[in-house]
Amino acid sequence: MKKKTIIYTCPYVPAEWIAAHGFCPSRIIPKAAGNPIVPMEGVCPYVQAFVNQVTTSREATAVVMTTVCDQMRRAFDIVTSSCKLPGFLMNIPSTWQHVGAQKLYLEELKRFGRFLVTLGGKTPSNKFLTEIMLEYNNARSSILAMRKYLTSSQYSQTIATFNRDGKEAVSWTLPKDKPPMAGTSLAIIGGPLLEESFSLFDEIENYGGRIVLDATETGERGICGHFDMDKHQDDPLRELADTYFCIPDVFRRPNNRLYDWLKEQLANREVRGIILWRYMWCDMWHAEVHRLKKWTELPVLDIDVNANEKGLSVRTHLRIQAFVEMLQ
């Protein structure tokens, strides 16, 4: 029997916790909302796309939304009033530097667990949760190891596919030859990507560039760290919470951990230029553009994705092309 699906988009929602309760976790990648079901002027296109996808979903059993962004937090009211899908709004603390915030996150996971039980899920034993966590650990390690064998587009799609459809949907067969590592090394950083945005990676390669660091929320940055199952042997949920809580993000206060993470990654990957991918009305990333440009010596291309574009606009294409050419 096919498992019931729980849909979400936020990286702070642990897939393992959903799976351990007997559900199929699906971190969806929404399509741009060409015609938003609930037109909302001034709302970020990603939120609109997410609302569209959720309110029209026929496969989902429930939706989980989080408080990492104010518009997403408020969109929960729209979703719950626009469709009958059971919804859970998970509170993700913005602060992180004290135990209280971490404990709050752990308590939210427990509350989420109770919600899953109301949907017919079963509270997992520590042993079962540990097994699931190890499964995910292994799958994620394998995906991260695939980076050098895949094109940037394939790699980012693999991460997204794994998060959306699980490991069964991932093609684990590696190409015989490593892809050519030519092209100017670039990083893309920002919020989550829409389904149409993945063409960006190939476009960049066509222009002579190569994304060596996908630091979008959909990419590597949105993957939690490796679980240390020895750390909390009798309490795997705590290990799960501790690890997920450390995902670096722009909404964190202060958000210097994001910069620390970026500093390390940019140096490791020998990045020569940064593309900042942000949505119109996304204040969190928008406010960081100026700071990022001051912080890094690398050139930064600020791409603001406005409206509900199906694919990239001509203007965006030209700007990326010019950026890559400038770096060559």
Partner: peptide
């Protein structure tokens, strides 16, 4: 910070990064 508007949170973060250190406290949704 937490259940607050993004504008303010983002601007306050910039202020912090510009050298005006902030003591952040969490207000949950």
């Amino acid at each position: 910070v937490g259940a607050t508007c993004d504008d303010f949170s983002a601007i306050a973060q910039r202020l912090d990064a510009l050298g005006y250190p902030i003591m952040w406290w969490e207000i949950p949704h």
